[in-house]
């Protein structure tokens, strides 16, 4: 009797232990057969030499690709450009995104859902189509150029496309929703009675905001900033399409080295340098992003 009970128990236990692995099997097959070896392979390859004379990869272990990136002025410039643009985009998104999140949350009223819908709708449209829209709007025949021609009374108004400003504008448009969502998320976790209590105790609206609401929403500000920075650092399509070849951000360089110069070891090395920077930012920003790049989106 006792042994029968025990065997039922072990059988049940064995089933419980095996089922999750059975459920994970299909996805693990894809990830272990393709994804993991692919990532490991380019990492190894980034440590190999590229013979630019014969356009061949030589399997000699070397850190030359990494050393080259950090000693060559051109690539240091690429790195600095990428970081600078990411910081600018993060800063603009932070200021505008905070105002917008505040507006949607406190002034949105019954239209709040529609505001969020408007804000999120471009997220689901491919970056290429959005870039095309900007091209038509900001390009030489676009509405903005016509407007500037009329206002500034000149035939060659300043351009905001195919240069750094165009890239910043495009990136801001792409990543603003992430910032707003992050800040909205932390605004809604604030107990609404706290700023009200501050007001009741004699604080001005401005004081109630700067002393109560703003500090309490800082987690969202932080999460949103890290998220936008990380996403901008890795952006490829926007600088490619709106930069007019003049804004070589790091992901674009990876693309060029990979497909134009077929220097695969160096392309891989740049990819891992990008990963190292992004990874460091995520790790140092602590738990804020513990659930990954889109953690904030699905928290």
């Amino acid at each position: 009797m006792a042994s029968a009970k025990a065997s039922v128990a072990t059988r049940r236990r064995a089933r419980v232990n095996l089922l999750p692995f059975f459920l994970l099997l299909p996805v693990m097959v894809v990830f272990l057969a393709v994804f993991a070896p692919a990532v490991i392979h380019i990492f190894l390859q980034s440590l190999w030499k590229f013979d630019s004379f014969r356009l061949a990869i030589v399997r000699d272990l070397t850190a030359a690709n990494y050393v080259k990136f950090f000693t060559d002025a051109y690539y240091l410039n690429v790195l600095w450009l990428t970081i600078r643009i990411s910081l600018i985009v993060t800063g603009i998104s932070l200021v505008i995104g905070y105002c917008l999140a505040y507006f949607i949350f406190y002034r949105g009223g019954r239209f709040r859902t529609y505001y969020v819908l408007i804000l999120l709708s471009p997220l689901l449209v491919t970056v290429v189509v959005r870039a095309f829209g900007w091209l038509l709007f900001l390009g030489d025949n676009g509405l903005l150029a016509q407007f500037l021609k009329f206002v500034l009374r000149t035939d060659s108004p300043p351009r905001v496309i195919f240069n750094e400003q165009g890239v910043i504008l495009g990136l801001f448009h792409v990543y603003l929703p992430f910032m707003v969502l992050a800040i909205l998320g932390s605004l809604q976790r604030i107990d609404i009675s706290l700023p009200m209590a501050a007001r009741n105790l004699g604080a001005s609206a401005y004081q109630a905001f700067t002393r109560v609401t703003l500090p309490l929403s800082l987690p969202g500000v932080f999460t949103g900033s890290v998220l936008v920075f990380v996403l901008t650092m890795g952006s490829f399509a926007v600088p490619f399409l709106l930069g007019g070849g003049k804004v070589p951000m790091i992901a674009m360089q990876v693309y060029e080295k990979e497909l134009v110069f077929i220097n695969w070891p160096f392309a891989g090395a740049m990819g891992f340098i990008l990963l190292a920077i992004v990874g460091t930012v995520i790790i140092f920003s602590g738990r804020a992003l513990e659930r990954g790049k889109y953690g904030v989106v699905f928290q």
């Binding site: 994804f35 692919a38 380019i42 990979e258």
Partner: peptide, 30 residues
């Protein structure tokens, strides 16, 4: 709850953290 659960979970969601170009380059070369 099973051995390696957190590890597997991180592994399966890692494509979100890796820069997309790195995934693209990695797959092409693989």
């Amino acid at each position: 709850r099973f051995i390696g659960r957190d590890l597997i979970s991180t592994f399966l969601t890692s494509p979100l953290i890796l820069p997309a170009v790195l995934i693209g380059v990695g797959l092409l070369q693989f």
